[in-house]
Computed example of a mutant assay.
Amino acid sequence: MRLTQGQFSFLPDLTDGEITMQVQYALDQGWAVAVEFTRDPHPRNTYWTMWGNPMFDLRDAKGVMMEIDACRTANPDQYVKVLAFDSSEGFETVRMSYLVNRPADEPGFELVRAEGPGRRVDYTVRSHATARPEARHGA
Protein backbone atom coordinates (compact mmCIF):
# COMPACT_ATOMS: atom_id res chain seq x y z
CA MET A 1 0.00 0.00 0.00
CA ARG A 2 1.27 3.45 -0.83
CA LEU A 3 0.02 6.22 1.44
CA THR A 4 -1.41 9.16 -0.49
CA GLN A 5 -1.58 12.03 1.94
CA GLY A 6 -0.88 15.70 1.33
CA GLN A 7 0.16 17.54 -1.78
CA PHE A 8 1.94 15.68 -4.55
CA SER A 9 0.61 12.33 -3.31
CA PHE A 10 -0.37 11.40 -6.86
CA LEU A 11 3.24 11.84 -8.06
CA PRO A 12 6.30 9.68 -7.51
CA ASP A 13 8.27 10.60 -4.38
CA LEU A 14 9.91 14.00 -4.68
CA THR A 15 13.67 14.15 -5.11
CA ASP A 16 15.72 16.26 -2.72
CA GLY A 17 16.07 18.85 -5.49
CA GLU A 18 12.30 19.03 -5.90
CA ILE A 19 11.80 19.23 -2.13
CA THR A 20 14.32 22.07 -1.98
CA MET A 21 12.39 23.98 -4.67
CA GLN A 22 9.09 23.53 -2.81
CA VAL A 23 10.63 24.62 0.49
CA GLN A 24 12.19 27.68 -1.15
CA TYR A 25 8.81 28.56 -2.71
CA ALA A 26 7.21 28.43 0.76
CA LEU A 27 9.97 30.55 2.28
CA ASP A 28 9.69 33.07 -0.57
CA GLN A 29 5.99 33.47 0.35
CA GLY A 30 6.97 34.31 3.92
CA TRP A 31 5.60 31.05 5.29
CA ALA A 32 7.12 29.23 8.28
CA VAL A 33 8.21 25.68 7.59
CA ALA A 34 7.99 22.76 10.02
CA VAL A 35 8.99 19.09 9.86
CA GLU A 36 6.92 16.33 11.51
CA PHE A 37 7.13 12.55 11.71
CA THR A 38 5.00 9.57 12.78
CA ARG A 39 4.75 5.83 12.47
CA ASP A 40 0.92 6.04 12.45
CA PRO A 41 -0.29 7.99 9.40
CA HIS A 42 -4.00 7.39 10.10
CA PRO A 43 -5.99 10.12 8.29
CA ARG A 44 -7.39 11.37 11.61
CA ASN A 45 -3.97 11.43 13.28
CA THR A 46 -3.36 15.14 12.81
CA TYR A 47 -0.88 15.37 15.67
CA TRP A 48 2.38 14.05 14.33
CA THR A 49 5.55 14.55 16.39
CA MET A 50 7.22 17.82 15.54
CA TRP A 51 10.92 17.73 14.69
CA GLY A 52 12.31 20.74 16.53
CA ASN A 53 10.43 24.01 16.29
CA PRO A 54 8.81 25.61 13.24
CA MET A 55 11.44 27.55 11.30
CA PHE A 56 9.94 31.04 11.39
CA ASP A 57 13.13 32.93 10.69
CA LEU A 58 14.74 30.92 7.87
CA ARG A 59 14.83 32.30 4.34
CA ASP A 60 17.14 29.73 2.74
CA ALA A 61 15.94 26.20 1.94
CA LYS A 62 19.33 24.74 2.90
CA GLY A 63 18.58 25.16 6.60
CA VAL A 64 15.23 23.39 6.24
CA MET A 65 16.83 20.61 4.19
CA MET A 66 19.36 20.06 7.01
CA GLU A 67 16.45 19.52 9.42
CA ILE A 68 14.63 17.23 6.97
CA ASP A 69 17.79 15.13 6.54
CA ALA A 70 18.33 14.97 10.31
CA CYS A 71 14.73 13.83 10.85
CA ARG A 72 14.98 11.21 8.09
CA THR A 73 18.24 9.90 9.56
CA ALA A 74 16.79 9.66 13.07
CA ASN A 75 13.46 8.15 11.83
CA PRO A 76 14.24 6.14 8.68
CA ASP A 77 11.24 3.80 9.04
CA GLN A 78 8.66 6.49 9.73
CA TYR A 79 6.67 8.96 7.69
CA VAL A 80 8.18 12.44 7.56
CA LYS A 81 6.32 15.44 6.19
CA VAL A 82 6.97 19.11 5.57
CA LEU A 83 4.37 21.74 6.43
CA ALA A 84 4.33 25.41 5.49
CA PHE A 85 2.29 27.80 7.64
CA ASP A 86 0.97 31.18 6.54
CA SER A 87 0.33 33.68 9.34
CA SER A 88 -0.42 36.68 7.11
CA GLU A 89 -4.10 36.75 8.12
CA GLY A 90 -3.32 36.78 11.84
CA PHE A 91 -3.68 33.03 12.36
CA GLU A 92 -1.71 29.99 11.24
CA THR A 93 -3.02 28.36 8.08
CA VAL A 94 -1.38 25.29 6.55
CA ARG A 95 -0.61 26.17 2.92
CA MET A 96 1.49 23.15 2.05
CA SER A 97 1.85 19.64 3.45
CA TYR A 98 3.66 16.78 1.74
CA LEU A 99 5.58 13.61 2.54
CA VAL A 100 9.37 13.60 2.21
CA ASN A 101 10.02 10.15 3.70
CA ARG A 102 8.11 6.91 4.04
CA PRO A 103 9.02 3.53 5.52
CA ALA A 104 10.24 0.80 3.16
CA ASP A 105 7.25 -1.30 4.23
CA GLU A 106 3.98 0.65 4.41
CA PRO A 107 1.63 -1.51 6.48
CA GLY A 108 -1.62 0.12 5.35
CA PHE A 109 -5.01 0.17 6.99
CA GLU A 110 -7.77 -2.23 7.94
CA LEU A 111 -11.49 -1.58 7.61
CA VAL A 112 -13.12 -2.79 10.85
CA ARG A 113 -16.82 -3.66 10.88
CA ALA A 114 -18.87 -3.55 14.09
CA GLU A 115 -22.48 -4.68 14.21
CA GLY A 116 -24.77 -2.71 16.49
CA PRO A 117 -28.39 -2.96 17.62
CA GLY A 118 -30.86 -3.98 14.96
CA ARG A 119 -29.27 -3.96 11.54
CA ARG A 120 -26.90 -1.12 12.27
CA VAL A 121 -23.32 -1.60 11.05
CA ASP A 122 -20.50 0.83 11.85
CA TYR A 123 -17.13 0.96 10.16
CA THR A 124 -13.83 2.42 11.24
CA VAL A 125 -10.31 2.45 9.85
CA ARG A 126 -7.43 1.09 11.91
CA SER A 127 -3.79 1.59 11.03
CA HIS A 128 -1.78 -1.64 10.87
CA ALA A 129 1.21 0.38 12.17
CA THR A 130 -0.44 0.62 15.60
CA ALA A 131 -0.68 -3.17 15.86
CA ARG A 132 3.11 -3.54 15.66
CA PRO A 133 5.28 -2.95 18.71
CA GLU A 134 7.46 0.10 18.29
CA ALA A 135 11.06 -0.77 17.47
CA ARG A 136 13.47 -0.11 20.31
CA HIS A 137 16.82 1.50 19.62
CA GLY A 138 19.73 -0.85 20.23
CA ALA A 139 17.51 -3.93 20.39
Rank of each mutant, 00 (worst) to 15 (best):
L99T: 11
F109D: 14
R95N: 11
A34F: 03
T38G: 05
M50L: 14
L14G: 09
V23M: 06
D57E: 08
T46I: 04
V112Q: 15
D13Q: 15
A32F: 01
G30M: 11
L58T: 13
R95W: 04
K81P: 00
P107S: 13
P103V: 06
W48C: 03
A104P: 11
V82Q: 02
G17P: 02
G30H: 13
E18V: 02
F37M: 10
A104I: 12
K62M: 05
Q24C: 05
H42A: 12
A61S: 15
A84H: 09
C71K: 12
E106F: 14
G63M: 06
H42C: 02
V112P: 08
R39D: 11
P43L: 11
D13H: 12
T46M: 09
A26I: 06
W31R: 07
V35C: 10
D40V: 11
R44A: 08
V94W: 01
G17K: 13
R59K: 10
M55P: 01
R39G: 05
N53Q: 13
V82H: 04
Y98K: 05
D105Y: 14
D13E: 15
S97Y: 00
R44D: 10
Y98N: 06
Y98E: 07
K62I: 02
V33N: 08
Q22W: 02
A104N: 12
A84Y: 02
V80W: 13
V80Y: 11
K62E: 13
I19C: 03
D28H: 07
P12Q: 10
R113E: 15
Q78S: 15
N75A: 03
L83S: 05
G90N: 04
G6T: 11
G90C: 04
L14V: 14
N101G: 03
D86H: 09
S97H: 09
C71A: 09
Q24T: 10
T15W: 07
F91W: 10
T20E: 08
D28I: 02
D77P: 01
E67D: 08
W48S: 11
R39Q: 03
P76F: 10
P43W: 01
Q7H: 11
T20I: 02
D40H: 04
G108R: 08
E67H: 04
Q29W: 04
D40Y: 11
V64T: 07
D69N: 13
Q78L: 05
E110R: 15
N53P: 00
A84W: 12
V35G: 14
A34G: 15
T20F: 10
V100S: 03
P12F: 06
G108T: 13
F8L: 03
G30K: 07
P103H: 05
F91A: 03
N53E: 14
F37H: 12
P12H: 07
R59E: 05
A84I: 06
V80T: 15
M50H: 06
R39H: 13
L99S: 08
Y25R: 15
T20D: 10
D105C: 12
T73S: 15
D86W: 03
P43S: 05
A61G: 05
